[in-house]
Design a protein around this nucleic acid. Structure first.
Lengths: 234, 234
DNA sequence: ACCACTGTATGGTCCGACCATATGGAGACA
DNA sequence: TGTCTCCATATGGTCGGACCATACAGTGGT
């Protein structure tokens, strides 16, 4: 097969609404827009980008469905399209919606978590920093002091998220965040079913010690054992 | 213009495009629409639902971004909006947008692919079916017959997607689909850089053989070697 | 049988108008 | 002066129509 670049590349001319999307995406990526900021009006954007207002609206609808912006009619400071969430947050909501409406089984979710956490734990053991260790210790302390199961799960999420971020892979970390948010109720239910958090706490300590010691194998093993204990049925 | 305001008109809570979305979702949920079916034209839908074509278009754009429908201009049997995936598969293009929005590095993407594909390959070796093997063979044949790099990459994607689906985890398969779609241009560029597809083809044969033979270890090793070869810099 | 041209259905884009909503300010009023 | 009412205005929401771009289906000539 011929792999020489023939010189011609299909320059796909983006549709108008894709231009608008790209423009907004760029401004978000460049931090020109922060959460809570107001976007220019539809008419103004249309003129700036030299497209019709219809096209601008189609792009805004897409972003609205994704939970990136929120539109509000009227004339006040809250009117217009407002950036309500960075795209990372949009992924979270969508995944949750997806889990709620679709037929994804808990087995699939836990399996994915297992994959990500094992990988993350290995990297965490290699690249752990004092700051991350401190975050994990705080999470552990908060878990110990938690008065309710919901509170416990919240700080448990912090703990696992810290490990995911130590993977150095934002895609994995974002997916992990989304999964945790999506199955939060399920996690609470799972803890209730266990009846006690003693085993989980012991697991966490083991994970922490292994990562702090830089022991990859132990970290991976501890994470595997922890997930197997927390979700025995999945 | 004068309207005989004879009485109170019920305020429509949902916006017009949401009516269209709801209508299409209902028809999909009721199995009135199967994957591959063609939706009514924009003008016809507008008349049926008593909304403007603009509103219909906004709804279709959302569904398109979600990967539920695909629009094609022209007049043939493939023209119009076609249902390409049930909403459960919507995650795909969502992740794609997410990738575009958050400027992830190629390292992160390839790393994630590596994780998913190694896992999938192991499961594939255990649960492979004749049907999946046939799909993989077809993809391999198409790759061999590909006239352009873009075509080659397309069938290469088919091949890897088949393996991902063999994992039995739809969340992983959807993520894989999203990643492939998101980095398609990059993949084409990578093949160009290699200058030849010989090594990749040999890798694919090796992967296929290992999975067909039910050899987990060999399958995982072959996948790892393949990705390392295809994306040496990442 | 083949090919070039044309008709047509469909999505893609744009425009201008008007409606719906919500604020801010002007003016009336106590 | 304070407060209430009403209206101008800015903004999104909806609509209908016009025209362009695309790609197939005929149609007719060769």
């Amino acid at each position: 097969m011929e792999t020489q670049d023939s010189g011609w590349r299909p320059v796909r001319r983006a549709r108008a609404f894709e231009d608008v999307l790209a423009q907004i995406e760029r401004r978000i990526a460049d931090d020109e827009l922060a959460v809570g900021d107001r976007l220019p009006g539809e008419r103004q954007m249309a003129e700036q980008l030299q497209v019709s207002r219809s096209s601008v609206r189609e792009a805004l609808r897409v972003l609205e469905t994704l939970g990136v912006v929120s539109s509000q009619a009227g004339r006040g400071p809250d009117a217009g399209a407002v950036l309500i969430s960075r795209p990372e947050g949009a992924l979270t909501d969508l995944l949750r919606l997806h889990l709620g409406l679709s037929s994804l089984s808990m087995r699939e979710v836990v399996e994915t978590r297992m994959m990500i956490e094992r990988w993350s734990a290995a990297h965490a053991a290699d690249h752990v920093t004092a700051e991350h260790l401190a975050r994990m210790r705080t999470a552990l302390a908060n878990m110990a002091a938690a008065a309710t199961v919901a509170e416990f799960v919240e700080h448990d999420t912090d703990f696992h998220l810290t490990i995911a971020e130590l993977s150095g892979n934002r895609l994995l970390a974002a997916t992990m965040r989304a999964l945790r948010a999506a199955v939060q109720e399920y996690a609470i239910e799972a803890v209730h079913r266990l009846g006690t958090t003693e085993g989980l706490t012991a697991d966490h300590m083991e994970i922490y010690d292994a990562i702090a010691a830089g022991d990859r194998e132990a970290a991976v093993a501890a994470v595997s054992a922890h997930l197997a204990r927390a979700y025995p049925t999945a």
